[in-house]
Nucleic acid binder design. Sequence first.
DNA 1: TAAGATTGAAAAATCAATCTTG
DNA 2: CAAGATTGATTTTTCAATCTTA
Lengths: 157, 157
Amino acid sequence: MASADDGVSAWAALLRTHAAVVPKLARALSTTGLPISWYDVLLELNAAPRRRLRMRELGDHAVLSREQVSRVTTELETAGLVERQPNQEDKRSSYAVITDEGRRRLRRAAPTYLAAIERHFARHLSDGEVRTLIGALGRVVEAEGPRGSAGRPGQGV
Amino acid sequence: MASADDGVSAWAALLRTHAAVVPKLARALSTTGLPISWYDVLLELNAAPRRRLRMRELGDHAVLSREQVSRVTTELETAGLVERQPNQEDKRSSYAVITDEGRRRLRRAAPTYLAAIERHFARHLSDGEVRTLIGALGRVVEAEGPRGSAGRPGQGV
DNA sequence: TAAGATTGAAAAATCAATCTTG
DNA sequence: CAAGATTGATTTTTCAATCTTA
């Protein structure tokens, strides 16, 4: 078994990676006219079943708080890239749907975004490392994410 | 070679892990009376050569901006956990030094912090994954971090 | 003229209600 | 009374000077 410190070092490495890479991506994206929060929301909506998602789902899947989702969605609506749709099945919630214009803008920005991730992150990793990251961090999100341990009792403390 | 999408998936996994775990650590730390930003600064200072670091170094090593470092240091100074020392060699910069009381508080909070990282992060990873994360992400930080590509010309674009 | 540090102003995030429906 | 969404208020973070020394 590895030293207990190693878990901490791994966490520190993740934290530093985040701190180093996020600003560079934001910079790269700024040339596209799509702020990173806009891009994230459009990306999730575009990939969703009917190109739409409830606010709650959007917040869970994207890396934004519920309040942020509300505000970003309003901005995107004003810009004509997203529309709000009432949900008939449950009138408490509403859908956000990506518009055609939203998809166009997303498509236009995508190459820049992908290139930036490649350049500032993926380029430094081997294929095996990439697979390990996806698997290992996916498991952490599974357990700790919004849908993860929320309902489960955990293990005490 | 893995699909180019995998690099993006790995980045997304890192982003989601960060979003899921950071709030849980902050919550855990809140019981110790040491905000996470305080903890980070004290930790770095305590590990540094003469238990002191220039502001710039503190910002590079911890995950805080230069301005945040200034403000957090002032807070810590008020709380008596850190002192500012003038730097004779280069009067532009000043040192932050951790005090004995600062070390006490750090020692007191450490078990809580370590346990939280173990519980919300490291617990979900195998030893091999931990090693891979340290190596792979370490390389990214090396290349992209504050000291990384800052001076180097990179590869165009 | 640049590097290091700091600080007021602006922007963005979170917190704490509030409102509506289940 | 809980769940989903939104909004005003507060806190935190970043931006843009400013000041001092190399």
